[in-house]
Amino acid sequence: MDINMTFATQEIWTWWIAVYLYLGGLGAATLVVTFLTDMYLKPHRDLVLWGAFSGIVMLGLGSLMLFIHLLDHRAVLNVLNPLVLIRHPHAWIAWGTQFIIWMMWWGLFYALPYMIDSPQLNRIPLLRRLLKAGFIAKLSGRCCLRFHKTIGWLATINGIGVAVYTGLLLQSFPAVALWHNPGVPLLFTVSAFSTAMAFLLLILGIVIKREEDRPIRVFYERTDVMLIAAELVILFSFFHYMSAGSESAMHSAKLLWSDMGWLIGFIGFGLIVPFFLELRCVLRGSRGHAPVMLAAVLVLFGGYLLRHYFLAAGVYAFPW
């Protein structure tokens, strides 16, 4: 039977979900990076506090996007229940949700000791009373401090889980060639960490502003440059993978590589420009961090565009 095809993009998951995927990846990666930095590079209370808080807030916001978008909010209980992992281990949303939840908890526990002896936080009256509360102290001392590294690692694992999950989720939709391939989780993970680096560079550069953090910044810049490079390589191979083979992929390719938002917005200003800006700093050492800050902002906004266009350009082939 000769079958005809209609090629269609979807309007089921739109920017709401793009934001979810973006903030999820960014938030998780931010926590991971700050904790690893704190554990192995240089203990850094403020960085951890900022990383943990902004990370948790981002994860919260992201999840909220998904939640609002649900048809039946009550039934969300079915995925909040951890046993979901035993029942539906094949459903990435199940994993993602659990990762996000636990990542938040571990993040909080890891940050708790720092919170207790953070002068800034203790200036906030209510919070102060809470932090001084006996059970908090106990919790902090007996658990958090005692197993600080373990908790850090638990958070890290969950964080990485979340970052990878955002890609795996799309990968699990077999009809769309652009999504249903192993490049996606890779790309989304790399992008998540790259944006996290960018975000932390902004924190260090604008909020914390300490000279002695230079090594961290430099380390972040270097990693980010490598991550962006990696991202470009992955996208390049995507381009080739899509330009031949399945019709779905070819139509997605047509959509993406003829779209200015994708080409100039994401590839151009979201990747290449920041890449060179940061590369310059890395090679010549930065004079004043304006360029890096700019690069960071661009990377962040590129990160969103990536998710946005990926969702928008997924092409289904409907037979008739």
Binding site: A75, N78, V84, H90, S172
Partner: peptide, 8 residues
């Protein structure tokens, strides 16, 4: 089915 997180 395999992507359904709730078992619905």
């Amino acid at each position: 089915l395999s992507v359904c997180p709730t078992g619905a």
